[in-house]
Nucleic acid binder design. Structure first.
Lengths: 148, 148
DNA sequence: TATTGTTATACTCTATAACTATA
DNA sequence: TATAGTTATAGAGTATAACAATA
């Protein structure tokens, strides 16, 4: 941000502070997971399927806070890569039962290790007084990925 | 989120918590500003121009953390609506000098009143102990707009 | 050379409507 | 009727490359 620019009060407002912090952290997460060919939502899907073996796509959409149609291509891709297995749910043949494959579990474990490093960067960005105030914390978060 | 769904640890992770909180607050802000025909970034642009009369588009892009091409249509629209005035900067004829019109100032003031109400909703969602922890705060924020 | 604004373009994420198959 | 998955489509928001005008 241009330091000469007078304060418009923008970065004191929770909506914009959240937006910028979220954007910065998301970008860092995208870069973190890229070596594993995983987008954040795809990684999250693997986490959810791991913790909820046999869940259906609707469950994942709810957990991610998005709509069902947006999960279709995502799950298709995971199945094509043999990271999850999609089988018809015998009890209710409208839905699928999703489970991690062994390969999916191994891939998730590798990505999780990288994610841990990412969380470390966040902790560092939050500084030594993470509870000193939400705006301060978010302002610091928004600086993730900025050369220091 | 499906309450039956076992915890995948997802909502304990800052990246996803931020994402969901940001999304919820942003949606609330969009709805708040809609009656004024302003998107959040357009409203933010008015705030920046008000606090930095004579600034150029590049300044706004920097403040918003976006790239210059994405501001062109936005500023065009504000000029067409007679909310800001764009005049050639005599000192550097490459750039424009942006200032609020009287109409723009009045429109911004009206929107700002609505924005205050939105901030009240956020304060309420944050609860009475806003500093008790970042994740808790964000989890509460993510519930904005959810029927309680 | 570097910067400002611009145009054209593309990608990600998310939303809605309508279909199918099952219940 | 309602639900799960799907298809097609649309919209916001942001990104990059390349150009003209100006410095």
């Amino acid at each position: 941000m241009n330091e000469q620019l007078a304060r418009s009060g923008l970065h004191q407002q929770i909506g914009f502070a959240l937006r910028q912090a979220s954007s910065a952290v998301w970008s860092d997460l995208v870069a973190t997971l890229a070596p594993f060919d995983l987008r954040p939502q795809v990684y999250a899907t693997l986490l959810i399927v791991e913790a909820n073996a046999g869940c259906k796509q609707q469950d994942i959409a709810d957990a991610l806070g998005i709509h069902r149609p947006n999960l279709v291509a995502l799950v298709d891709d995971l199945v094509a890569r043999n990271l999850i297995e999609r089988s018809v749910n015998a009890a209710d043949r409208r839905s699928y039962s999703l489970v991690l494959t062994d390969e999916g579990k191994a891939h998730l474990d590798a990505a999780r290790a990288a994610h841990k490093v990412h969380e470390g960067r966040i902790a560092k960005a939050l500084g030594s007084a993470p509870h000193s105030g939400l705006i301060d914390a978010l302002t610091n978060l928004a600086k993730i990925g900025t050369p220091r």
